[in-house]
Design a protein around this nucleic acid. Structure first.
Lengths: 210, 210, 210, 210
DNA sequence: CATGAATGAGCATTCATTCAT
DNA sequence: TATGAATGAATGCTCATTCAT
């Protein structure tokens, strides 16, 4: 054990663990927790099942390590939302970051979507202990903007929900998005289109009203 | 067999099947396809496992019947979107209907969310054959409104996505919504708050610009 | 559930369960708890492993049912020890019964021997709640006999231990007994020889001294 | 290889092997052969599993070395039984030695008890080749005493069994003994009580009869 | 229709043993 | 010698499905 209370690990061990977590992200985000099998993860990681279990005690341990390790990445865009600067610029930047995450890290998004769909059994404590305080803090910032007359008077929490929902949609419901958009509009450009639409929606929808 | 190529069924048979589908909706929407077991469904339906399998050939058959049977309900709000009448009124009504569905039929919403998250393996054909044409049709209506200068010029498909995303969020991510809102704001009133917010967002965001 | 709080069982179920318990007695008494496998028991019971697990939820459930079901049989000889009648006759009868059990029910004896050797993890509560009070009660009877001058003054608890030890030895250590006695003395007559020896030992050893 | 056909070993090798055997005695006597794992033994010996397997080829090899190495200790008390001197004094001394072994080496006793309970699969040859001749030899001594009228006429083999059974009982069934004796009588004094009882039993029971 | 019983395939996990260094 | 890493073969248990009645 080192100072942080974590078992000491060699560089090779860390690399193998990362390899497994990468494979696990693939599998868990596609199949959900129950649908995923250790065999699939081991296969994806290119190792035998017992060898995988040499690095992680159990299926649950893999999942926990994965989802806890991704929490910071998942929350980073919101953490960056800053009270300083023009509110509409800040919000646009937040929407952009979230949309980039949906584009660049769709598996992570689906992992959390799966988890919350099932009732967040593994991260309920984190939702309460980390997510809620963070959202409350950012809601206060939004409230300040509203009081200063810089944006329209809206419910800050539901504003945040709507940004989450609209941006993550392009990761979580990607299959449907592509089918509906069809081959022409459903290519890589869909994220640009989405960005343009969402910026228009939110910026016009939030512009302070006379 | 009757004219439709379906096996003829007595009224009692239909009732039993509905009982099973109701139980299956409960279980599949909570546990996902892989996580659900026939035992759980049989238990929830108050019958024995072999008896359940007398009415449905397999787990997959239950799931297929369930999700296909719900498709019409799921698409109904969009189908009602009408080219006649004031566009903003129409859109507000659509948002309301979708939000009411999230409130009143969260299991159905989660069932489809699960399905699409996994890549829509069971309904890909339906997405392509039914959903896409329907959305294209409604997108045409929106385009008409834009051409008529009745709403701002936005991408109709992404507009529809954003309505889906924001409203279904209150069903699919309900666990997270309630944690973040806390006991005070997270009660039954959250749907009213959401409705107010979303109407403001979309109606202001879509108001035709000078 | 019936009045006794047990799940209701059909006659066939009971027969199958008994068949399994019979097989489990075979396997557990030979291999111990850890050494026994469900496969072995299923094989011995002539059924498939999942079918066996249809009747008993788990390996532990089989073991518990087995050992709890045998406790009464195991304690019966001691329960019969009666304060009425000639002490030496009573004790001789007790020794005989115990020796007959070692001869007729060696698997049961070895099952308990295994269990206690491992520290009685499954029946500790029974030892404390049932066995100890019973032994204390019978020790009181022996004390009465001693006070009445009918047998020599000995420690009743250690007397009981010595009867247990010497008689169960012919079941638990049967392998060694037969090797040591050799083919000539190690046949079925060994129980007769043991009975003669033990009666002599205990009756002479306990005869009241001048 | 040295003269005895054993691989030559350095002092350090011998010490390591002894360390392992000591740990193995702990684990095997508590868990039985099947219940014990190499991991547990390695852990108890304070070394890695592969390192342990460098000193002993396999789990079985550890067990064999252990049980064979203990055989002499196990048989020592009986070997000391001498034809010279007063028979009752000799027998009393034997009982004392056996009881002291049960007190001081309970793990060894339980190891053999486990082994014989399972049918002595690892030491059958030793039972036949070493134990039986030894017992036969000592039985001859007892027969001599009987012929000389120095002790009552009893079956020598069953006499020896009864001494084994009664003394080893305090090691093998220690858990049960302590529960039945309770906190008052079940402390360290239980061996003194047992010694007193057993001496009374055997010496009075064997005193030559008129 | 209904159900108790049965099972092959699968799944998470353990374990003795081997390999590479 | 010593050990981190790797694995084939279990092992307890689950589950969708089938069989028999």
């Amino acid at each position: 054990m080192n100072a942080a209370g974590q078992p000491a690990r060699t560089r090779i061990q860390r690399e193998k663990r990362d390899l497994i977590l990468e494979a696990a992200l693939d599998v868990f985000s596609q199949q959900g927790y129950r649908g995923a099998t250790i065999d699939q993860i081991a296969e994806a990681a290119g190792m035998s099942k017992p060898n995988l279990l040499y690095y992680f005690r159990s299926k649950d341990a893999i999942y926990q390590a994965l989802i806890h390790g991704l929490l910071d990445v998942w929350l980073a865009p919101l953490r960056e939302l800053d009270s300083v600067g023009d509110p509409l610029v800040e919000l646009r930047a937040y929407i952009r970051r979230k949309l980039e995450m949906a584009r660049d890290f769709p598996r992570e998004s689906r992992l959390f979507a799966n988890e919350i769909l099932q009732g967040a059994p593994h991260i309920m404590a984190l939702l309460e202990g980390e997510l809620k305080p963070l959202v409350d803090e950012k809601a206060d910032i939004v409230k300040g903007w509203i009081r200063a007359g810089k944006i329209a008077s809206v419910d800050p929490w539901h504003l945040i929900f709507s940004i989450w929902a609209t941006t993550q949609h392009y990761a979580d419901f990607d299959t449907q998005v592509r089918v509906v958009l069809g081959p022409l509009k459903g290519g890589d450009g869909r994220f640009e289109d989405a960005a343009r639409f969402l910026e228009g929606l939110f910026l016009d929808g939030l512009r302070p009203r006379a």
